[in-house]
């Protein structure tokens, strides 16, 4: 069973709403075929296999990072139906926390996970309890404004505390290694592996633990959850905490190869949103696939249309997908 938090309207039973396995397979086959054709075109344009392999490897690794950043966003959307525009700012905050931890304690950057992830969890729970729970029944634009305000507040507090000077975190032994002839930094490989581990952990928590079942129940039907004695507001807080922890893990993992500035996270916001929509809002493994599609699209488009912004191709793909499957590649058919 896919770890999907998508909410379906309560109806009398109809098996037609959930795509059958064969439908999912069709989607996968089409996606892979399109990527193969694009890759072939890119190969012709590139003229050298080294350039192509470099693009593919970079695309996959960058895609993993995009999905890493998008994970918290899709989790929070799936349960709370809030598009958390502060997700990028939370990632930026986590990067600064990593910088401070490494700078003051002199520890290995990945050791900062032990500090940053729990701290982000506590912060996430506090934010949901104090700012978002009171507006959960308000119109969606109110919730959007709260998260946008939160993003501005976080960015400006970071600016106030750390100033505009860019910071960086050095990963010891971060050398370039060769994969199939392509050269990549180790830190990017670690971040990619981190994305896979994060998907696995979140899926396990949601599918196999009591709190995860409660989270899925609240996502499926908040009223039903209250009727069986679940305090939905505390589940919302736990979910936002998990989303913030995912943003925290993403921040630590991308810090070694990202220039740390107060607005660093905002750069990820738009891409993360595209990734979440492509993967199906609320679908955690979908976010991983969405990230890979965006990462590969960017790199291959760079080969085919070297003079255009890679984002052009990303948004063309985005629009085509929205047109064909409005609920995302792995979303449920409408």
């Amino acid at each position: 069973m896919a770890t999907s938090l998508q909410n379906a309207p309560e109806t009398t039973g109809s098996a037609a709403r959930r795509p059958t396995l064969s439908e999912r397979q069709k989607v996968a086959i089409v996606t892979v075929s399109v990527l193969a054709v694009v890759t072939a075109v890119a190969a012709l344009r590139a003229g050298s296999s080294t350039v192509l392999v470099q693009a593919l490897v970079t695309g996959v690794l960058t895609g993993g990072i995009y999905s890493l950043v998008a994970m918290g966003l899709t989790l929070i959307y799936g349960v709370l139906h809030i598009i958390n525009f502060a997700n990028g700012a939370l990632v930026a905050l986590a990067m600064y926390l990593t910088f401070v931890t490494v700078d003051t304690m002199g520890v290995h950057p990945y050791t900062a996970l032990l500090v940053v992830v729990p701290a982000m969890g506590v912060l996430g729970a506090l934010l949901q309890t104090s700012l978002l729970n009171p507006v959960m029944r308000a119109p969606i634009q109110i919730q959007l404004l709260v998260t946008i305000g939160l993003a501005l507040a976080i960015e400006n507090v970071l600016l106030l505390v750390f100033g505009p000077t860019p910071r960086s975190v050095q990963l010891p032994g971060n050398v370039g290694v060769s994969i199939l002839g392509a050269t990549v930094e180790l830190s990017r490989i670690y971040a990619f592996v981190g994305a896979l581990v994060l998907v696995a952990i979140l899926s396990l928590v949601l599918q196999r633990t009591a709190i995860g079942t409660s989270i899925r129940a609240v996502a499926a039907n908040p009223e039903g959850a209250r009727l069986v004695g679940i305090n939905t507001k505390s589940i919302y807080s736990v979910t936002f905490a998990l989303g913030a922890m995912a943003a925290g893990a993403a921040g630590v993992l991308v810090a070694p190869f990202t220039t740390i500035e107060p607005t660093s996270g905002a750069i990820f916001n738009l891409t993360a949103f595209v990734v979440v929509v492509l993967g199906g809002m609320g679908n955690i493994p979908g976010a991983l696939v969405g990230g890979l599609v965006v990462g590969l699209t960017e790199q291959l488009a760079g080969l085919i249309l070297p003079d255009e912004s890679p984002l052009l191709a990303v948004f063309v793909v985005f629009l085509i997908v929205l047109f064909i499957r409005p609920k995302g590649v792995f979303g449920r058919a409408s």
């Binding site: 079942t213 409660s214 899925r216 959850a225």
Partner: peptide, 24 residues
């Protein structure tokens, strides 16, 4: 406990999971 007219089931959860949640 109320069973509302529209039932308010957890549609994307299994029968067993719905029952487990009831026991909460």
């Amino acid at each position: 406990m109320l069973v509302p007219e529209h039932r308010a089931l957890f549609g994307s959860l299994t029968v067993d999971e719905n029952l487990t949640m009831g026991a909460r």
